Amino acid sequence: MKVTVFEMAEKAYYQLMRARIPDRDAELRQILTAMTKHLQPNVAARITNELLAHMAIETGFLEVFIPILREEFDLDHDRERVLFLVQQNPRIFSYIADRFNDDKEIVKSAVEQQGNLLSYASNRLKNDLDVVLSAIRNYSPALSLAGPMVKNDEALLKRLIEENPYAHYFVSLATESLKNDKDFVLPLLSRDAFIYEFLSDRLKSDPDIQAAIRNQDDGFRK
């Protein structure tokens, strides 16, 4: 019966999980060698490559495979390989971000699947509206990881607030200059009175702000 690469990868994975943690890198090499020793060298290399890729994509213990992946796949330089792996398993980005954190295609591929990975992006890309929106779409708190240019983007915040019933959450993440911008804040109070908690003392005492809050209270009581 022909054994598939998937079945070989599953077997290698479970054998590896039984290995002692300090020896897992060496153990994995031994497992892969044993599995492919009957093959021609070029075929063995291809199968080993496929096995490693499969395990990297499917595993929940990615840290086990990163050292050998770096060596076998040259993750520090092989951009196309990195992009493919990140597309399949975004967590890989967190392990290679030191080399590719300013590569927009790779970063966007990671954050549009797992928004909290924005924390590993470069400062330039944390201020890239396209990248940040990709992260926010699947993880709203990603805005907290964005750069100041994005957090101070009035149009973006208004858009997020309009799309989200918890407007105060996005206001809480805005820069101080926006939180102190009466023209920005006042229209939003009618959507979410909790915004008031994040305003400066100056704005909290503003007559128009006070009136907006009273209107909210009156509407609630009615």
Rank of each mutant, 00 (worst) to 15 (best):
M8L: 15
A9Q: 05
K11C: 04
K11T: 15
Y13F: 13
D25S: 07
I31N: 08
K37A: 14
V43L: 04
V43F: 06
A44G: 10
A44S: 12
T48I: 12
E50W: 03
M55A: 01
E58D: 14
T59I: 06
G60E: 13
E63D: 14
P67H: 06
F73P: 01
D74K: 15
R81V: 01
Q88S: 13
N89W: 03
P90L: 05
Y95E: 12
I96H: 08
A97V: 01
N101E: 04
K104P: 00
K104F: 03
E105N: 11
S109W: 04
V111F: 09
A121V: 12
R124E: 14
L125R: 12
L125P: 04
L125F: 04
K126W: 09
D130F: 03
A135I: 07
S140F: 10
L145T: 00
G147Y: 09
P148F: 08
V150M: 01
D153A: 04
A155R: 03
R159D: 13
L160F: 07
P165Q: 08
T175F: 07
K179H: 10
K179G: 09
N180T: 10
P187G: 10
L189Y: 10
A193T: 06
S200A: 08
P207I: 02
P207Q: 08
P207M: 06
R214N: 12
N215D: 09
D217G: 04
